[in-house]
Design a binder for these strands. Structure first.
Lengths: 336, 336
DNA sequence: ATGCTGTCTGAGAGCGCTCTCTGCCGTTCG
DNA sequence: CGAACGGCAGAGAGCGCTCTCAGACAGCAT
């Protein structure tokens, strides 16, 4: 049962040498058609499947990449509805390249160390770090160890020489579009629920908001959240206290926007009549919120794909090229 | 940089043999304290990390398990908010056991084959198949190949000898609780949006509904969906047509319940005043629906953990024991 | 002293694969 | 017609680790 046939067996059966079988199996060059056919037949008959560990040992490649979530796992995997799409995108590319995808949750220091060890152990051709936190030390640590690393979201320390390549979205532009939409609709007192200011996405989206307001004659009204729904609730309450007359809110994440929606409803404000709300991310729940949420879409799936592509090129020793910046898109629904 | 130190180097440095270093590294038995210390020092100084491929080749273990989603990936990973929790649960156990988690999406035939090959290639100690579809051939195929497999959700063909062990939840009981809650509240015309009848969860939850109605003097009103929100919308419309006088709905999934909520709102029915709604799953969005959804909670995280535990015991050659059936719990919020 | 047990270490044979190197052949060129 | 060439198969040396086996040596009883 567990006695899988080896190259040796196949070679014997096909009446050739191990090396030849290896050539055929790896689809490589110059093998006479008849011999190739004989080998393939033997492979078929024996149900031969190469032992990956042995191959990996001999080639010093691993044929797999890791996707690590470098956040406290609770947060990432329950509250944040964006990761599934990202995973799917990554998975799609890795499968196309016939690589395997190892998932690692590295929220704790122990987790970090695990990732480090695993990568160092040569079981990984590359690592994708999906941590939105700019100050995360993991990418740098891995890079220093010689492991190909790419990041989702521009690192806070980007620009520094040797910073890992990354895939990011047009956060500033997206936020600008959202706020412009509000301005165009004639909203006068446009507040924002900003994201955490230690994350690039948080910073950039606030910048976008400020850019537009500066260009119009409106003043900014800011509360800061951490992208979660709970923080959105708290921030919205704060905003209502600070400026009861506000007529629009741009939330830097959909989850915060959803929280805001709830608070507004409880406060008796009609959305969008009294207060317009725009979110950011376009998570699935945005489309079936009440009212459906106008938001800025991030191409998560595509990000995942690019991330995978990037790490794969990097792993193959090629130049990853310039950072990939993906476009965002305003999706207008009913909330604004 | 890439020249990682080998056991050999460490042995040399510590002035012992390879075997001894191996013993120390693997924490195994009888090694004199001084020698152990010397080895550890050498390991430290050289920054030694064992090469997993080599170990795997020598031990014929892989130290990793796969979590495979055997559904068309689009559906699983965008619409279904339950998988993240499951993943987290699995991940937690595998990390605790110092195993690695490989994620595979096997929606397509090609994907299935990949999983099969990979498992057969000896790169996996075990496989967790998270397919809710009862008729999925993958578990059986793998089992026949001698790969330890566990399933989430009782297989439709369960009971058959040699069926892989599984982790399931009390679907029938959960559904009963939900409907009992509705009956107790004095609802007279209780409809259900059932799940797909080729999945155990779909079947069992409908059974639970029927059990309770049979016990009271109410007749059943059934529409069938496929657990998605869209299908919930369609089913709710159907139900409203079939019996405009209904005063309660039990949906076999939260996503369908969310869809139903939307339809009811559009139809001008107040929830829970005119129509009470109960869902199933307790996805994150349930708690912030409008109104917050009363639902039956599945212990997803725990399911993940149990799944991992099960596959790990199975992989270690031990008896997995009886199928694990996890309890469900009625979470009463505002919608019923 | 001798033999015995028992603990600890080293030697060495793999695990299954890849890949370089060498040798063989048939072809083409000087 | 012999030499040089080029395509193709085989031999064999690892890749880095584990693990069995046997040897060395200490401690104890005889």
């Amino acid at each position: 049962m567990t006695a899988r046939p080896t190259l040796e067996k196949v070679a014997e059966r096909a009446g050739v040498s191990r090396a030849t079988v290896s050539r055929v199996v790896n689809g490589s060059a110059h093998v006479t058609p008849e011999i190739r056919a004989a080998v393939l037949r033997a492979v078929e008959e024996l149900g031969y499947v190469p032992n990956l560990a042995a191959r990996s040992l001999a080639t010093r490649r691993a044929d797999s990449v890791a996707l690590v979530f470098s956040e406290p796992p609770t947060r990432v995997f329950s509250d944040d509805p964006m990761f599934p799409s990202l995973i799917r995108g990554v998975s799609r590319e890795t499968e196309a390249a016939d690589k395997h995808l190892v998932l690692m949750l590295a929220g704790s220091p122990r987790g970090q160390e695990r990732v480090e060890r695993y990568a160092t152990a040569g079981h990984l051709d590359g690592v994708i770090v999906a941590s939105m936190h700019g100050a995360d030390p993991l990418p740098a640590v891995l890079a220093r160890r010689g492991v190909p690393v790419v990041c989702s979201g521009r690192s806070l320390t980007a620009g520094a020489r040797g910073a890992p390549p990354c895939v990011d979205v047009e956060n500033v532009r997206g936020a600008e579009r959202a706020v412009e939409h509000l301005v165009t609709a004639g909203r006068r007192r446009i507040a924002t629920i900003a994201g955490p200011q230690d994350m690039v996405a948080g910073i950039d989206r606030l910048t976008g908001y400020r850019n537009v307001l500066r260009g119009s004659d409106r003043r900014s009204i800011v509360a800061v959240g951490d992208f979660t729904r709970e923080s959105g609730i708290a921030a919205m309450r704060q905003l209502l206290r600070d400026d009861p007359g506000l007529d629009a809110v741009f939330a830097a994440s959909d989850m915060m926007a959803l929280g805001a929606l709830q608070v507004l409803r409880q406060a008796g404000r009609r959305v969008p009549h009294d207060v317009a709300v725009v979110g950011f991310d376009d998570v699935p729940a945005a489309s079936y919120a009440e009212p459906p949420l106008t938001t800025v879409r991030q191409p998560l799936h595509r990000m995942g794909r690019e991330l995978a592509r990037l790490v794969l090129t990097l792993a193959s020793g090629q130049d990853p090229g310039a950072p990939v910046i993906l476009p965002t898109e305003l999706v207008v629904r009913d909330s604004a």
